[in-house]
Lab assay of single mutants.
Amino acid sequence: LKKVVALYDYMPMNANDLQLRKGDEYFILEESNLPWWRARDKNGQEGYIPSNYVTEAE
């Protein structure tokens, strides 16, 4: 899975979204639905995130 790091905080707009915290790492599960990607956080929560809020992890 592709790993990304959040560049900004993101508060979910609806139940399908995943909250982002700046500096945290996330795994990308699906990239087909631009600009929204399906992601999983370190706690196993899954949801959609804005792809322009993250960058690929080193």
Rank of each mutant, 00 (worst) to 15 (best):
L1C: 10
L1D: 05
L1Q: 08
L1G: 09
L1T: 08
K2G: 04
K3G: 03
K3P: 04
K3D: 01
K3M: 09
V4D: 00
V4A: 04
V4I: 04
V4S: 02
V5G: 02
V5C: 06
A6I: 02
A6N: 00
L7R: 06
L7I: 09
L7W: 04
L7A: 04
L7M: 09
Y8P: 00
Y8Q: 12
Y8A: 10
Y8D: 07
Y8L: 10
D9H: 05
Y10C: 04
Y10K: 04
Y10N: 02
Y10H: 05
M11P: 06
M11Q: 12
P12H: 03
P12A: 06
P12V: 04
P12K: 06
P12L: 02
M13H: 11
N14I: 05
N14P: 02
N14G: 12
A15C: 12
A15N: 11
N16K: 09
N16I: 08
N16E: 13
N16H: 13
D17F: 15
L18M: 06
L18N: 00
Q19V: 08
Q19G: 10
L20P: 00
L20C: 02
R21G: 03
R21T: 14
K22W: 05
K22P: 03
K22T: 07
K22Q: 10
K22I: 07
K22G: 04
G23Q: 03
D24W: 13
D24K: 06
D24G: 07
D24V: 08
D24T: 06
Y26W: 01
Y26D: 00
Y26M: 02
F27L: 13
F27G: 03
L29V: 10
L29Q: 03
L29W: 05
E30A: 08
E30G: 07
E30N: 08
E31W: 12
E31F: 11
E31I: 11
S32A: 09
S32N: 12
S32H: 08
S32F: 09
N33P: 14
N33A: 11
L34R: 10
L34N: 15
L34V: 09
P35E: 15
P35K: 15
W36E: 09
W36M: 15
W36G: 07
W36N: 12
W36V: 13
W37F: 09
W37Q: 06
R38C: 10
R38L: 15
A39C: 07
A39F: 02
A39L: 06
A39D: 01
A39I: 06
R40N: 03
R40Y: 07
R40A: 08
R40S: 06
D41W: 01
D41S: 08
D41F: 01
K42H: 08
K42Y: 07
N43E: 12
N43Y: 14
G44D: 05
G44L: 04
G44C: 07
G44H: 05
Q45H: 13
Q45S: 10
E46D: 05
E46Q: 06
G47Y: 02
G47W: 01
G47V: 01
Y48I: 07
I49A: 02
I49M: 03
I49T: 01
P50T: 03
S51M: 11
S51K: 13
N52I: 09
N52P: 05
N52Q: 10
Y53C: 09
Y53G: 05
V54D: 00
V54M: 04
T55R: 13
T55K: 13
T55W: 08
T55L: 10
E56N: 11
E56F: 14
E56A: 13
A57D: 09
A57N: 08
A57K: 11
E58W: 11
E58M: 14
